[in-house]
Nucleic acid binder design. Structure first.
Lengths: 207, 207
DNA sequence: AACGGTTGGAACGCAACCGTTCCGTCGTCA
DNA sequence: TGACGACGGAACGGTTGCGTTCCAACCGTT
């Protein structure tokens, strides 16, 4: 027991036999992170609780991610994958209206309504989270807005230089502000008025 | 030492001599809470750190507030007191434009930019915070918007039934969404376009 | 059948806060 | 001027989370 040379990396064979990270465990952890994020927020999120919720040993978590931040980045990035469908109803107004309806439904989703504000708050103090959130939310939004506007331009409903940036902010900002801050149901004609405001802002830009 | 009846409040005299809570200490704590809130957020805010930052014993804190939540509610409510000035330039468009400029400046303020998202996130899981934030932000906003619109109606620039709710959301939502999520400087004509969108949405409502 | 690495679970020492209690000091009202 | 009570500071026991390290059990490739 004393003459063993510390084994100069004998030969590590291939990765392994059946001893490989089980995807189901990974998914369980990701789900637990998501739920925990909604329940207590990023600030209070702890690996210990995540593991407990996932029904998993802490070691299983640390085997995959070195710390809290990478896990959250992973989960957030995963959200971006399944983007929202792009409405294509044949007319700008109905496209915008459909988009608003979809957006308001997503923002009302209990889990989303908890997580997004939390991530935005954390993004203000963490550049990596900021980029992940931006990629997951804003970029996908912009893609949708671009498509809707491109279609409208092709139909001659909008001038070619419609302001996409403003459109994106008008389509999400007011809804977010109202739903998160007020948390009251939207007034009756709210989405219609907002639709008018957006289409007018886009079309009347050059007039 | 055994026959002492637990002192039926002998007579407590008046409050006290010079042993009264010192306002400067209270202020120091409030300031520390505010800074700590910006630095680490509500979730991670600890009485211990607040006391340390304020240069104060923990006891001084607990002498004033029983726990974390009341302190924060206190500080948040205090923010509502000094409301923003109401622009009154003599025309709707310039009023709105001034309001947007003011709003964007406030939202850019480093401390505010950190705290508001954080409070909104916490409001999603805490009804008391939600009400405090709503009172501090939304109500004061609405007051300003009402004044601006009332003036415009009096000048005949707007119909009497202009949609105040929508106006409030349009004036804050897009700016917030862009500044917090994008954190890039506003594009050149952004405030102008937004001004147009808002005034149009208000005036064109019934047309 | 054997190997190797993952599995859930328990425990480690360490650190941060919790809310409370006890100091000796200090300032001010009565 | 005396007494009351807040002051900063230190310490209390208890809880929680950290990141690591063991363990026996399991399982799929070879």
């Amino acid at each position: 027991m004393e003459n063993e040379p510390p084994a100069p990396r004998p030969r590590r064979r291939t990765p392994a036999g059946a001893a490989v990270l089980r995807e189901e465990v990974t998914d369980a952890i990701r789900t637990a992170v998501f739920e925990e994020l909604a329940a207590v927020g990023y600030g209070r999120l702890s690996i210990e609780r995540v593991a407990r919720r996932a029904g998993v040993g802490k070691a299983a978590v640390y085997r995959r991610w070195p710390s809290k931040l990478p896990i959250v980045l992973d989960v957030v990035s995963a959200l971006a994958v399944q983007g929202l469908p792009t409405p294509d109803t044949g007319a700008l107004r109905t496209d915008v209206r459909a988009l608003l309806e979809l957006t308001s439904r997503v923002m009302r989703h209990p889990m989303v309504a908890q997580i997004i504000p939390d991530l935005m708050a954390e993004a203000a103090r963490n550049e990596e989270i900021a980029q992940a959130v931006q990629a997951a939310i804003r970029d996908s939004q912009r893609t949708i807005a671009e498509a809707v506007i491109r279609n409208a331009v092709a139909r001659g409903e909008l001038p070619a230089d419609a302001d996409i940036d403003l459109a994106v902010d008008l389509a999400s900002g007011p809804l977010y502000w109202r739903l998160v801050l007020g948390r009251s149901p939207l007034p009756k004609g709210y989405l219609d008025s907002l639709t008018t405001a957006i289409t007018t802002a886009l079309g009347a830009k050059e007039s």
